[in-house]
Amino acid sequence: MMGMKSDIKLIDDNGLRIDGRLPNQLRPIKMEVGVVKRANGSAYIEWGGNKIMAAVYGPREAYPKHVQESDRAIIRARYNMAAFSVDERKRPGPDRRSVELSKVISEALTSVVFVEKFPRTAIDVYIEVLQADAGTRVAGITAASLALAHAGIPMRDLVVGCAAGKVDGVVVLDLNKEEDNFGEADVPMAILPRTGEIALLQMDGDLTYEELTNAMEMAMDAAREIYKMEIETLKSAYRGDDDDN
């Protein structure tokens, strides 16, 4: 859908976007952990119009046996969009897109978890998109990272997902649905904020080298902001009388 032609003006004369944001402004984000009692860890995130739930099970013995790795755990993320998550009913079940996203999310998470501590096991991460509004994979990664931390799984760092892109010739942060559909490019990233390492980088559309660098820079800055929110969410879950498990 990227690069679809339309008459919609995505950036107005004052340089504001259609939802009134500045180019480097994030959508409002709300996070919560411990929303699924049966899971070992869970998180819920509202990121603009996105509503995403993540639940972590394990580490537990991996079955079928041939998927086991004798020296480490495998992380099986499953990204799934609910049938009602988009305007037009989405045919339920895995499709090309969600299989791809499950794979890249698994790999991004594997890079932070100390997988070698749990040989022969699997850590299952379920990411359910209840309502989609562009940038679900990055919001999903953020939620998954919170859920992993909440499940007590050892990690090098928290992961922060954040997207940047280009609409109407301007590099902007955190695209929304309209910008994603009618814009020129979308760059979802997963970042390890402590070291600034990149765990996931994809690009849909065309950007020049300068634009890409600029977009990545923007996402990096935003990631630090989201990182603070993640820390606050995890710590506050144990502060007040908030109950967990």
């Binding site: 993640e230 710590k235 144990y238």
Partner: peptide, 11 residues
């Protein structure tokens, strides 16, 4: 009073 809570990757 609460003990100091840290998150993964916190120094």
């Amino acid at each position: 009073r609460i003990r100091k809570i840290v998150v993964p990757g916190e120094k």
